[in-house]
Design a protein around this nucleic acid. Structure first.
Length: 576
RNA sequence: GCGCCUGUAGCUCAAUUGGAUAGAGCGCUUGGCUACGGACCAGGAGGUUCUGGGUUCGACUCCUAGCAGGCGCACCA
């Protein structure tokens, strides 16, 4: 139950009937009203701006409107204890205890408390990670990976359908160089030939040695004497080995995709030609030249005639190349084919999670999706900003070349899966994260993750001491508890949970969940410590018994913590 | 030069789609453990929300013009 939505509906209804009874003449902008949380220093529970909204069109003052509405409220809503007007025009409502008792009664055994049951379910295609299959993932990749995974969890929690996909860029020059690198490592192993370290195009990382060994061991029928003869086969094997590493990384982070889509397959199945025909028919493809960029280092700019997509039509800076000089497809062309494939599968919404370094790509890919689907905003691109690594108080630049980078394996080993997920999620994805590797290791004790987990562990401990099981449903007939002000404060916080989920889902901003959970945990710890001075705030009696009132209170808190933590994909241990 | 992101307390960040007196953590500072687990809590100091203009009853939030930092700007992927 979202009490804010509930009251929004109630208020709208009330205003409409006031309108029919000629009490309020003009209610055109009734949609603009909202129901919100009042500031802390007001002794009330919810607040609405409806009087200010209606005052304008009716050419009157908010106080006049509020007088009418308050009278109606008092008549119709028995759960209201107090309702008042506050400058500059808010109506503040305070509920009776019975309201909060009913609220708890509804959510106490509801494992899905927070879910919005009123929204229309949609089908989503969520593409994320999609890192090149040329080696294991590094720390930079994992932010987007976690973001995507949690977005999927959020959408699923709200009953949407979600397909999680990984687009495998196993086509093009990078893959050719990667395969060649593997080839040289194989020759190094078999024939003792030194790896050409001065070739800047090759991948020097040590992990290639393992990949090479694996390929040799699994394929003793292959002849490695001539690269050209085995290049197709070797590409496949090398990509496969890379993907195994990547899947292992993702698995360590608790992430799994439903589907891996191969770029090579799309190209081999003529999907690129198909989509270009489709775009040509709509007159979005032509042969032409691109203008040189206006930066300084364009002295060696070569103007070429190329097959171009008319992305300027959709507001892009320039049209984008689909074909290279040698007539092979650009990355953008095959990605267009992939997105056409997505469009043809008829999802309601497409979402791509991109790293900040690919943000410049968004305009052209959303343009092409609009061209193909005829729908604006069919594709939503979510950018995850950089993770700035800091080591020993210095920025730490990762370099694959030097073998100087932090892998996901390092990270999980040092920090742990749960802490990694929690930290990566606790900031808005629009903001860069400082990830101080040294500090996170040292200070893992005062990590916000533990603060929230500790809350759950404390509640578990109370139930354990009372010989009860926290996960069992609570069976109580009468909810007429006399909660104190400090308890109501936490119950009110719980009532914000559905709103938090709503906003996080609608705006695709999962960071709101760890932020909320931290606040809830903070309120709880604060209450817990009150028990030291005040017997009535202790959960257990001397005989280790717990009252129904306290049982319900704790269960409600633990439900929200548990649900929230499972959405962000971290554990809630009973003991720490 | 252009595009995207960011600019809030000394530092790292929140701020419920435009609400009322802008909140946390760290750091600084004063207190609290014969414990329902102190991985905790209570208090204090700390703000011209980068700047100017605009819209609005109301702006950290929207518009506009700047300033500063980050990322990107070819046929790489």
């Amino acid at each position: 139950m979202n009490i804010f939505d509930l009251y929004q509906t109630k208020i709208t209804k009330l205003v409409k009937s006031a309108n029919q009874n000629k009490l309020i003449e003009n209610i055109d902008n009734i949609e603009k009203t909202n129901v919100d949380l009042p500031p802390k220093h007001f002794d009330c529970d919810i607040s609405t701006n409806v009087a200010m909204i209606l005052a304008k069109n009716n050419n009157t003052s908010p106080i006049k409107i509020s007088e009418i509405l308050i009278t109606l409220f008092k008549k119709d809503f028995s759960e209201i204890q107090d309702i008042s007007f506050a400058k500059p025009g808010f109506i503040n409502i305070k509920f009776k205890l019975s309201f909060w008792n009913n609220f708890l009664k509804e959510l106490i055994n509801d494992k899905n408390f927070g879910k919005n049951n009123n929204i229309i379910n949609k089908s989503y295609l969520l593409e994320f990670v999609s890192a090149n299959p040329t080696g294991p993932l590094h720390v930079g990749h994992c932010r987007g990976a976690i973001l995507g995974d949690v977005l999927a969890n959020l959408l699923l929690f709200n009953n949407h359908t979600v397909n999680k996909e990984y687009y495998v860029n196993d086509y093009g020059n990078q893959i050719l160089y990667f395969t060649k690198s593997v080839y040289y490592r194989i020759r190094e192993k078999l024939y003792n030939e030194p790896f050409p370290k001065d070739n800047k195009d090759l991948y020097p990382g040590d992990y290639l040695i393992n990949i090479a060994s694996n390929i040799i061991n699994k394929n003793n029928n292959l002849n490695f004497d001539n690269f050209n003869e085995i290049s197709t086969e070797l590409t496949k094997l090398s990509v496969q080995e890379s993907l195994n590493l990547i899947k292992l990384n993702l698995n360590n982070l608790g992430i799994s995709h439903d589907k891996f889509i191969s770029e090579t397959d799309l190209v081999n199945n003529q999907e690129v030609e198909k989509v270009i025909e489709k775009l040509k028919k709509k007159d979005f493809v032509y042969n032409g030249k691109i203008k040189a960029p206006e930066n300084e280092k364009n002295s060696n700019w070569v103007e070429r005639d190329q097959l171009l997509f008319k992305s300027t039509y959709f507001g892009d800076d320039k049209d984008r190349a689909l074909q290279k000089e040698d007539k092979s497809w650009t990355y953008f062309a095959s990605d267009t084919a992939y997105h056409n494939n997505k469009v043809e599968r008829k999802f309601d919404v497409l979402i791509n999670i991109l790293g900040a370094d690919h943000a410049g790509y968004i305009k052209r890919i959303t343009s092409v999706v609009e061209a193909l689907s005829g729908e604006k905003n069919k594709l939503i691109c979510k950018v995850s900003q950089l993770v700035k690594l800091i080591k020993d108080n210095k920025p730490f630049k990762m370099s694959k070349r030097k073998g100087d980078y932090i892998t996901i394996e390092d990270l999980i080993e040092e920090v742990g899966k749960d802490a990694t997920r929690f930290i990566m999620l606790s900031r808005s994805s629009d903001v860069e994260i400082d990830f101080d590797f040294t500090k996170v290791k040292e200070k893992s004790k005062d990590n916000p993750l533990y603060y929230v987990q500790y809350c759950y562990a404390r509640i578990s401990s109370v139930f354990r001491n009372a010989q009860l099981k926290l996960e069992n449903n609570i069976v109580i007939d009468k909810f007429n508890f006399n909660y104190s002000k400090d308890e109501i404060k936490i119950i009110k916080k719980i009532s914000e949970w559905p709103k938090c989920i709503d906003i996080a889902t609608n705006r695709l901003e999962p960071h709101r969940i760890p932020v909320y959970l931290y606040e809830l945990a903070s309120d709880f710890h604060s209450y817990w410590n009150m028990g030291k001075d005040d017997q009535s705030k202790r959960f257990l009696t001397k005989e280790n018994k717990i009252s129904n009132e306290k049982k319900v209170f704790l269960k409600a808190i633990s439900n929200v913590i548990k649900t929230g933590m499972s959405i962000i994909g971290v554990s809630t241990p009973d003991k720490m």
